[in-house]
Amino acid sequence: MNQIRISQSVIERIYEIRVEKIMRTDVTRVTPETKMSELKYVIKENNYACIPVLTGEKLVGQISIEGYVDWLTSEMGDVPVSEIMDIDFKTLHPDEPVITAVKELELIGLRGLPVVENESNKFLGVICRCTMMEGVLAVLDLDDEKESKKEYNCILNNIESVSALLTLNYIVEQKSLEYGGEISSSIRTDLYKLGLPGNLVRKTAIAAYEAEINLLAYAGGGTVTITLSSELLNMEIEDHGPGIPDVEKAMEPGYSTAPDWVRELGFGAGMGLQNIKNCSDNFTIKSTVGEGTVLIVDINMEGKCT
């Protein structure tokens, strides 16, 4: 059976989430004078979590669903909430980690816990089991988007030299094709970190990925060198593999010499080189049988750096 593995960074972030981030504030509150019979609808509105009892803004008690059921089965009649409410109960503070809330809920077996301000006991909201997970997921999602949209300052913008060049070197080691893409993934991340425009990064990553698959499938590895200037991204992919006997033929869409194991991975349909060419503004391929192959991919810097 496959299990969902939660990555370490996610676990770390779950520990960082504070109660205030995921508490519900849309809960209905009642006063000590509210009649017990009126709670019927409130319980449903509050999603069966606890019902906070407030005097002014101060939390003075709470009715748990369990307490309400006890009252229903007793013969106390329609008494005010103050006679039934718990006054000695656990509360959460807004700056506590969500993990504390989870532990408390498990420990007490309750469906919800009220959140109050540290000293004043001012009521702020409720953490309830049913919406907790949703809240955590929403926070994680939000953090992620923030992260992926993180804007880096393009360092090239800050360089005044007329011919600034930045070179990045990557080595594609001979490994199982299953690992194909690791280097392209690093390239992609690095280019984003340098603040290059998304469109350019995307084209470069796709071209690099197709080339990386080729390096692993046919050439026993190779190197990728990226040189950046303010107008151009130049990527050279070099290997010392067997070389391509008929380059023109190899460039034809659909022409492939790929063995089955390459095809099983979803490649080898004879589109790789063509795809690399399509991503480039200028594309050259030089290959010598017995010596190796060099691909040169030039991509213009369209638009401004972020």
Binding site: Y179, S184, A205, I213, G266
Partner: peptide, 17 residues
């Protein structure tokens, strides 16, 4: 949507975003 389930499917969608 695909019936291929290897790691390359993840790498591929990563590049294309």
């Amino acid at each position: 949507i695909t019936s291929l389930t290897n790691q390359q499917t993840i790498r591929t969608v990563e590049m294309v975003e």
